[in-house]
C-alpha cells in the first residue's frame, strides 16, 4: 500500500506543473544508422504534418500500406506537403532485416527502430499497422489496421487539417 501512496502523491504532484506544448512521449528510437532520436523531437516541425506509421517486416497489411503510400508519395506531396516516418517494431529476432528490407523496397521514408516496443507502448498502440498524423506535437488522426483504400481517409484528413 505504501508504494501506491507514493505513486498517488507523485501523480498529484505532477498536477501542479504548468502547461506544456508537446504531447508526444519522450521515448528514444534508433535510426537505421544507429543514431538515438527522441520521438518528442518530432514535435518541432512547424506547420508541416508528420505521418507516423508503426509497422513490422512480418506484417503483410503494414507492407501493403507502406507500398501504397510510397506509390502515391510524390503526387500527394504536391497537394499537401508532409513528412513521413515509418517506425518498425521488429524486435531483435527480425530487426536486422529492416535496413535491407527497406532498401529492397525503394521506399522514400525515414525509417526508425523501436526494438523493445517502448514507443508502441508509450503511444498505447495494441496492434500493427497503426498510423498517426501529428501536427504541432499533437496527434490529430489515427487509424489501426490497414486494408486497401484506407489511405484515402488518411490523405483526406491530412488535407482538411
Amino acid at each position: 500500500m505504501m508504494k501506491k501512496n507514493y505513486l498517488l502523491a507523485a501523480l498529484l504532484f505532477s498536477v501542479y506543473f504548468t502547461s506544456a506544448q508537446n504531447f508526444l512521449p519522450d521515448v528514444n528510437i534508433k535510426s537505421l544508422s544507429g543514431k538515438t532520436v527522441s520521438f518528442a523531437s518530432f514535435a518541432n516541425n512547424n506547420d508541416t504534418a508528420i505521418i507516423v506509421s508503426l509497422w513490422a517486416t512480418w506484417c503483410i497489411p503494414c507492407i501493403l500500406e507502406l507500398e501504397t503510400i510510397s506509390e502515391q508519395y510524390e503526387e500527394k506531396q504536391k497537394e499537401t506537403p508532409f513528412k513521413f516516418i515509418a517506425i518498425s517494431i521488429d524486435d531483435a529476432r527480425t530487426s536486422q532485416r529492416v535496413k535491407p528490407f527497406v532498401r529492397g523496397k525503394g521506399w522514400p521514408f525515414e525509417i526508425y527502430l523501436d526494438t523493445n516496443s517502448d514507443l508502441k507502448r508509450a503511444l498505447n498502440i495494441n496492434d500493427v499497422p497503426h498510423i498517426l498524423i501529428i501536427k504541432k506535437g499533437e496527434i490529430i488522426y489515427q487509424h489501426n489496421g490497414y486494408v486497401a483504400g484506407n489511405e484515402e481517409e488518411l490523405f483526406e484528413k491530412l488535407k482538411s487539417n
Binding site: Q96, K99, P100, F101, R103, G104
Partner: peptide
C-alpha cells in the same frame, strides 16, 4: 555477427 549491405534498390544481410 551481422553484416548488412544496401545500395539503390538492393538490400542484403547475413547473420
Amino acid at each position: 555477427a551481422n553484416l548488412t549491405f544496401s545500395k539503390n534498390n538492393l538490400g542484403a544481410t547475413a547473420t
